[in-house]
Design a protein around this nucleic acid. Structure first.
Lengths: 181, 181
DNA sequence: AACGTTTGTGCAACTAGTTGCATAAAGGGT
DNA sequence: ACCCTTTATGCAACTAGTTGCACAAACGTT
């Protein structure tokens, strides 16, 4: 149940329309909580019905008309409640690790190419995060909100760093194996 | 679409009944692909219907009667195909990072306790992984399948290490903040 | 004016995973 | 014999996320 809270956070950072939110979910917020535009529109409808956000009073609400939302006090309260509430970590699911485990039984034939592709994807993502860090978090800025956002970005950077290293290691292991089966 | 392949992998490692699989998914395999017993029973039924696995011929197939499965050649082939096939990484979703981002807007009140709880959970998981490494991967063993399985376990260890470090850092940052809102 | 593209909103159907509960057999205790 | 717990299998309903497509207005082109 995190999508509504991701949207509330995004709208508090800046009131937006559905499409603007969709674009911001392709960057920034989407780096740790992705969502498609259909999910976003559906959820905006629900949040409005629940009185947590409202459509900014402006144009007629017709199709193809931009409709911007901002967060009502009840929405901010709900987000604060959710942020502080205890939550258990989601059960792990990582396809790549599962595939390696499967490869231990059925062989590594054909696997290396996709590992290389993933390595490249993680390298790109890492470079993108580092660029954002350079641009948005120069050494002098450290307002409270910035410190938290920087912390989140650091998690992204460190995770991508881990994956590039692990994949590099995995590729040398796979190359060294007899390639049985 | 990875649960059937997780089950095929587990059954190739050792033929099992639904409940035995469920228990193994609470350890081992489940460390990177979790599943409930309901998911597993449903999927066993599908895999049998598709001719990828078969119930071991023994007892009558009544309720409350143990029913073990093993993998047919078609199942092994499907697993090999899936392992080698290119797959895009799943879109990221991490609730904890999202909560930190939300806290940057609505304040960190009440957050620290749950961060501490998560830190403790990750420490426990890390200790468990390290125990498994000590037990199952002594320095001398390195048959091909062992090397791959060890690689997967290393990913788990390194990820848990990352999270404990990051959470420790996050807690000092949160403590240092004015706790606005 | 007609036509195609872009921007923006949205429904419907589907897939995957979760939660809650039901059912049956086996074994031990009294 | 009866009851209670454990082991084992399974259905049904629900929630979250994905995929494919439809619809409308705005704007530029010819």
């Amino acid at each position: 149940m995190s999508l509504p809270h991701a949207i509330l956070t995004a709208l508090l950072e800046k009131p937006s329309s559905g499409l603007e939110l969709t674009r911001r979910f392709d960057k920034s917020i989407g780096y740790f909580w992705s969502a498609t535009h259909q999910q976003i529109y559906r959820e905006l409808g629900k949040l409005e019905a629940e009185g947590l956000i409202r459509a900014l009073p402006s144009e007629q609400p017709a199709r193809g008309q931009k409709k911007s939302y901002d967060v009502l006090p009840a929405g901010r309260a709900e987000l604060a409640r959710w942020t502080a509430a205890a939550q258990d970590p989601k059960p792990q699911r990582d396809v790549l690790l599962l595939r390696l485990r499967a490869a231990a039984v059925v062989g590594t034939a054909g696997l290396a190419a996709d590992l290389r592709r993933h390595l490249e994807l993680h390298r790109r993502q890492l470079a993108e995060y580092q660029e954002i860090e350079r641009r948005d978090f120069p050494p002098d800025r450290d307002a409270p909100e910035d410190r938290l956002r920087h912390l989140v970005l650091r998690a992204g950077i460190d995770l991508e760093t881990f994956w590039t290293q692990w994949l590099t290691h995995a590729l040398t292991e796979v190359a060294a194996l007899p390639d049985a089966d």
